[in-house]
Computed example of a mutant assay.
Amino acid sequence: MSIRVVHGASESSFEISGQPIYFVAEKLRDILNVPTQFISYLDGRLVSNNYVLSRDNRVLEFVKPFGHKGGLPDFWSEIELFEFFGNKAMERMVEAGLDLESNSVIPKSEVISWNDWLQNLEEPRLEIPARVDIKKEIIQMNGENYHIDQEMAAIVKSILDAKGAWITTAEMQKKYPEYIVNDRVDNVIRRKLYTHKSGIGDYIEGSWRGYHLTSRKE
């Protein structure tokens, strides 16, 4: 069944089920004058541009994000994430390190980062064999569990969530204020994380820009 695609005053119906929205937008850019930056509404609800269309969908609308009343909420529940991204994208995100067990809600900044990561298919994924459970004080490296206190776990989680991008200690504290209480986060990283028996320190690089994940140091 065809899906009605709308952008402003332009609209038409197409057989596009099974395709991600960003691919449809690129395909119909000249036909419907779809802008490079857009927000997608599928059957009246906001969805990720990576959402895969199904035969049950009826109307896909592309909207310019600037000045639009609709926007991304500040915090997202697990149910909202699945509704926004779709099952296939969520499976990829969990495989890549999205932690739904330790976090009851996900901040908007992280949702945007995941959306960018999903859409940038040419960017290689930085493979770090680490999983962190802040509340249980566990870090898993290469399938093996190690004890790590909650503050260090929250720092590692902040760096992992950035997926290779630089993150400052102030941003870490803002993200996990209930866990990261030490005013000298740099000291915690240099004196504890760099020497932690799990080996996570081998994947963390620091500079004046903050900290980020890097390839394993030889």
Rank of each mutant, 00 (worst) to 15 (best):
residue 155 I to T: 09
residue 108 K to Y: 00
residue 109 S to H: 10
residue 129 P to F: 10
residue 153 A to K: 00
residue 119 Q to N: 10
residue 188 V to Y: 06
residue 106 I to T: 11
residue 101 E to K: 15
residue 180 I to D: 05
residue 174 K to S: 15
residue 139 I to S: 05
residue 153 A to M: 01
residue 166 W to Q: 06
residue 158 S to M: 03
residue 128 I to V: 15
residue 162 A to E: 12
residue 142 N to M: 12
residue 123 E to V: 09
residue 187 N to M: 15
residue 108 K to P: 08
residue 124 P to L: 06
residue 165 A to F: 03
residue 143 G to W: 00
residue 93 M to S: 10
residue 156 V to S: 05
residue 169 T to M: 07
residue 120 N to K: 10
residue 105 V to K: 11
residue 113 S to V: 01
residue 150 Q to Y: 00
residue 179 Y to E: 09
residue 143 G to L: 09
residue 105 V to S: 11
residue 148 I to L: 14
residue 167 I to E: 02
residue 153 A to G: 08
residue 106 I to V: 15
residue 149 D to Q: 09
residue 158 S to Y: 06
residue 139 I to H: 00
residue 127 E to Y: 09
residue 128 I to S: 06
residue 163 K to V: 03
residue 159 I to V: 08
residue 154 A to T: 08
residue 151 E to L: 05
residue 138 I to E: 13
residue 157 K to F: 07
residue 171 E to G: 02
residue 149 D to H: 09
residue 159 I to A: 08
residue 170 A to W: 09
residue 113 S to K: 15
residue 132 V to F: 06
residue 122 E to F: 03
residue 157 K to W: 03
residue 117 W to M: 11
residue 134 I to V: 13
residue 99 D to Q: 04
residue 175 K to Q: 15
residue 105 V to M: 11
residue 122 E to C: 04
residue 175 K to L: 15
residue 143 G to K: 11
residue 164 G to C: 06
residue 181 V to C: 05
residue 100 L to V: 07
residue 162 A to I: 02
residue 164 G to H: 00
residue 158 S to R: 00
residue 160 L to F: 09
residue 101 E to L: 12
residue 117 W to Q: 08
residue 123 E to R: 12
residue 186 D to I: 04
residue 166 W to M: 04
residue 159 I to K: 05
residue 152 M to C: 14
residue 150 Q to A: 11
residue 105 V to D: 07
residue 101 E to Y: 12
residue 145 N to L: 10
residue 137 E to V: 05
residue 93 M to G: 03
residue 108 K to R: 15
residue 125 R to S: 08
residue 156 V to Q: 01
residue 123 E to A: 14
residue 146 Y to C: 04
residue 170 A to L: 13
residue 142 N to F: 11
residue 96 A to Y: 07
residue 99 D to C: 07
residue 124 P to T: 07
residue 180 I to A: 03
residue 164 G to L: 00
residue 121 L to T: 14
residue 182 N to R: 13
residue 131 R to A: 12
